[in-house]
């Protein structure tokens, strides 16, 4: 029996977006509610990052609408969405590399008064204790895992209601990637954040997600709770090809779909 999903906080209704007038995602609908982790999985080139960029105002939505609570926020500027509580961690260029860890956190809290930023930094660092001894270090000196922690910590400075994470485990060692997903990202849902997660590590994403959408060639082809999806014969066929398992997925295999 399906568990009831929370009321949506962020909702995309039939959105289409792309580059230079060429749509990459078409008629995509999805939603995420407080305390819920929604995973978007799919092969490389499916349009996952494009979808997230459209949701956070970096790419123009040409049709459909995006609702934040009961307010329409379609094509609002990224800085306005940040002010309204939408945090975004891009897949690459996710930190201000030439600045220190502390300065990255300060920029994450740019919209807060100075005194609040000073109070907020220790709170956020408590979520990622590994960052504490390296506040004065330049961000481009961090390891891959530390860098991702900083990227998420930076977004948490504004205490966003919605967190949009684009492949937070990209370029991380498998063990570190699993740890980041199971402990840190999962923990964000426990904090009551609405988490929209694009993830190539499908098995790990399905383990922490309450709901999953499968995006293929710019359209949602399948969605449901992870258990329901895993029970479907066509799930692996659609996403990976029947001969491969989810955990051993590689992008080249994924492209066979």
């Amino acid at each position: 029996m399906s568990a009831k999903r929370p009321d949506p906080l962020l909702r995309a209704e039939g959105i289409t977006a792309g580059y230079g007038g060429v749509p990459v995602i078409q008629d995509v609908s999805l939603s995420v509610g407080p305390g819920e982790i929604v995973a978007i999985i799919g092969p490389n080139g499916a349009g996952k990052s494009t979808l997230l960029k459209a949701l956070v105002g970096i790419l123009r939505v040409t049709s459909g609408r995006i609702m934040l609570g009961d307010q329409e926020v379609t094509n609002r500027r990224p800085e306005e969405l940040a002010r309204r509580g939408v945090g975004y961690v891009p897949q690459v260029q996710d930190i201000f590399e030439p600045m220190t860890v502390l300065e990255n956190l300060e920029m994450g809290g740019y919209l807060l008064p100075a005194a609040t930023i000073r109070a907020r930094v220790p709170e956020v660092v408590e979520v990622f204790p590994a960052l504490k001894p390296m506040l004065k270090r330049r961000a481009d000196k961090l390891s891959g895992g530390e860098r991702k922690m900083l990227a998420i910590a930076r977004v948490l400075m504004l205490d966003p209601k919605v967190l949009i994470l684009d492949e937070p485990t990209a370029n991380l060692a498998p063990q570190l990637a699993d740890k980041l997903l199971r402990e840190q990202v999962n923990g964000l849902g426990a904090l009551g954040k609405a988490v929209l997660l694009v993830e190539q590590r499908a098995r790990a994403a399905l383990e922490i997600a309450a709901y999953t959408s499968v995006l293929v060639s710019g359209s949602i082809r399948m969605e449901g709770q992870p258990g329901e999806l895993l029970d479907r014969q066509d799930f692996e066929e659609l996403f990976l090809g029947a001969a491969t398992s989810l955990s051993s997925a590689s992008s080249s295999e994924a492209n066979k779909v």
Partner: peptide, 17 residues
């Protein structure tokens, strides 16, 4: 600092508000 952030990564700066 906002100038330096904008110089380093203008898109990310906008995402920070």
């Amino acid at each position: 600092k906002a100038m330096r952030a904008t110089a380093a990564n203008p898109t990310l700066a906008r995402n920070c508000g």
